[in-house]
Every structure is written in structure tokens, then in C-alpha cells.
Design a protein around this nucleic acid. Sequence first.
DNA 1: TAATTAACGCAACCAAGTTGCAATAAATAT
DNA 2: ATATTTATTGCAACTTGGTTGCGTTAATTA
Lengths: 140, 140
Amino acid sequence: MIFFSSIYLGYICFMGVLRKTKSVKLLLSEFEKQSTAISAITLIERLQSKMNKTTIYRVLEKLEDDGFLHSFLGKNGYKWYAKCTNCSSAEHHDVHPHFQCTDCGKVDCLSKDALIPNIPNRKVDVSRVVLQGKCEDCFT
Amino acid sequence: MIFFSSIYLGYICFMGVLRKTKSVKLLLSEFEKQSTAISAITLIERLQSKMNKTTIYRVLEKLEDDGFLHSFLGKNGYKWYAKCTNCSSAEHHDVHPHFQCTDCGKVDCLSKDALIPNIPNRKVDVSRVVLQGKCEDCFT
DNA sequence: TAATTAACGCAACCAAGTTGCAATAAATAT
DNA sequence: ATATTTATTGCAACTTGGTTGCGTTAATTA
Ligand SMILES: [Mn+2]
Ligand SMILES: [Mn+2]
Ligand SMILES: [Zn+2]
Ligand SMILES: [Zn+2]
């Protein structure tokens, strides 16, 4: 039997089978205090005294399913996560490029309109774009 | 003491410390008979009876250093290789997007002019673009 | 407060890619 | 042709980001 619960965490609202556990709150708070993307590896480093890495991967996956986070692969094929804007479990509509600074390692989401144009004779579904270079802070 | 040798394999010419070994010839022939990109995993599968996977990774790395192949990370963070055009050990000037078919898995290089525009306040050095969707064959 | 079951911790596992080292085989010198 | 040099190879062991199975714990509901 499936049951639904509304979970309010600050100003965020989820609909779905997601419990307001200590782990969920801890992970969410990381994305509250930081607006840029965070790699799974970094989260494991930061939270390893407070929760198991298996739990981290599992909660991240669930938060992505729920449309609160989106994921992508960074520089070395490592997994990164960042907050969604206006996504739900029904649909992720925030496919956009990401920028990683080769100096400080910071990753942020770029606006959608920096997307690749369509390719002739092919139907583009997903566009995984990772730009690398110097960010605002490290450039000047 | 360093020595130089010109190695001619078909119409391809290398300058550098690269021996015309059985392994090098085998790997090169794979890129001769196929114009699309090939993943390291696929090459290991295909050639495992003929050479060790360590050798495959090492030869691929060397061919990339020599400007004959370029590499990029595909769908699951796996390493892919494709032929360069007019690159050398001195400089790789073939940064371009890649297209992977979600149906048949084929990956090919796209033309340079499909590149991302510049981003304000940031200096873009590398642009790793992997588009996914249906290729010509699988689309129609 | 008790019952239900999603979520957790742990340990073992998986797989792509790397490393150290002794053996081998291209290329060069004689 | 043969000996010498040393880049390259095979093998086994390792590294590491991420996954899986399962018994226990704790969030939610009755
Ligand atoms: Mn993003
Ligand atoms: Mn290419
Ligand atoms: Zn930076
Ligand atoms: Zn296809």
C-alpha cells in the first residue's frame, strides 16, 4: 500500500514517498548554503562523519527523481548535483550547460539559451555540455 | 639518448618515439576500418584475445599524445577515442562536440561550428559537449 | 504506544582505469 | 647476420567511484 506525505523543509515542498530523515535534511542543507553544483565525492568528504556514503548516493538519487536536484558528469566523469528550478518528479525541464573552473574547481549552471543548436538529420534528446575554463573570480 | 624514426602505416605518418609494434598496428587498423569513435571498453572487448587491456590503454594514450587520436568522455563517463584531422604532438586543434545515438550507441564527431558561444565574464578553455539522441540511421 | 515499512549502516562487491616490474621484441649499432 | 639497447608488453595487484544485499533502525501512521 502506497501512502503520500507532504514534506515541508524550509520553503521547499515535496510530494512523494520521501521521509524527512536526518540524512535528507543534512544533504538538503548543503544545497541551501551553496548555490553552485556539488560533486558526490565532495559531499561524501563533508558528511562522512554524519552518514554513510551509500546513503548519500541513495538520497541524492531520490532527490533527483523528485525533481529537486539534477545531475551531470563533470571533468573526470565524476557525478555532480545542483538544485533544479521548477522541476518535479513528473518532468525535468532544466537541461542546460555547466561551467567548471579549472582553477578553483567550482561548477555552476549556465542559462539554457547557451545551448547547442540542432544538428541536421539527427534528433537531439539530451545535450550534456561541460565547459571548462576560468570563472569570474579566477579570471580577473 | 633520444632517437627519432618515421613510421609509415598506410597513408599515416608519425614523427616521434613510437615503435611500429603489433599492438600499435592492431589498434590503428580498428580506426582505419571504422570512421566513428570507439570506446576503450569496446576496443578491449574486440582485441582481448590479441593484446592486454593495459597495453590498449597505454597505446591509446600514446596515439593521443602523438596527435593521431583525440579522446573524450561518453555517456557513462567512459573513455572514447576518435581519429584526429591535422593534429600533431605539438597541438590538438580539433576541439568539437560529439553525438552519441541513444539507439545504436554509435558516436561521431560533429563539425567545430556547432560549438558553444562564449560565456560573459568567463574564459572558456575546454568545451566538452556530448549530445545524445537518434542518429541518421535510427531516426528515420 | 504499537505496527508498518522506508531508510540506514555495513561489508562485500563491481568495473573502468592505473601502476610496478620482470620478460619480450622492435630498432639500432657492430 | 648478431649483439646491444631500451621501448613496449603481459601479468597481477591495486585504486576508486559507485552499487548491491541484507539485517537493523527510525520516521510515519493507526
Ligand atoms: Mn545545472
Ligand atoms: Mn571527435
Ligand atoms: Zn574559479
Ligand atoms: Zn543510431
